[in-house]
Amino acid sequence: MYATNFSRAANLADASAKMGAATDGKYLAGGQTLIPTMKQRLAAPSDLIDLTRIPDLSGIKADADTVTIGAATRHYDVATSATVRGAIPAIAALAAGIGDPAVRHMGTIGGSIANNDPAADYPAAVLALGAGIITDKRTIFAEAWFQGMFSTALGTDEIVKAIQFPIPAKAAYAKFPNPASRYALAGVFVAKMKNGSVRVAATGVGEGGVLRFPALEAALQANWSAAALANVAVSPEGLLSDIHGSAEYRANLVNVMARRAVAAAG
């Protein structure tokens, strides 16, 4: 790792001021991606500004229609939250399947969303539920947020404060992890919203990161059942092809994981 200067932000204004003063600063949350990336010298920020001690950036709250998760909330706290388990159990289950227990104790939802790794789990839930990403400047909805692999609408000096998920009628996430890395080879989040609309988003498969599957959505809209997907072909076009699996293999996995998710959602 190259040398860097670490500081803790006391509040959002302090974080922005520290970022403004840095030559090439980077905000640090749980660090479970950023620190390994820095160790490999693939990133070398002059300054690291730790956001995790900012009050109000952590925590979970819910009302009748939404669950709002503070950006610095750890995966473990989402996975074990009675509020999340009650309102959107699919998100608690998704969080419980990220990395391993030690990684879940450190990693944060805001970090995951801001990094937008093409195989990260949270983006599937954010896109499938049409969540709002609340920053210190504005609210950006999922469709506008994700802009391709490791790319989002977040400005360099902008800070994610919270993610607001609409509570669906039904939802579930099914992941096929790479047997070695445990990252999603295909992770599919299915959601039936309270207004009846159906959304399906998958991580780990798209060349441009997380994406929706309109054909699967249309089939489930007509008939919310795993059987309804049996004959729906998923096109390999635009899907990743690498040593872990061909685009055709991933396309098939999307259908299989979607069926498992619908069955789990009930």
Partner: peptide, 13 residues
């Protein structure tokens, strides 16, 4: 009180 990987955390954190 929580298990973490000490190779993936800075001492200053």
């Amino acid at each position: 009180g929580r298990a973490v990987k000490s190779c993936t955390m800075l001492a200053v954190q």
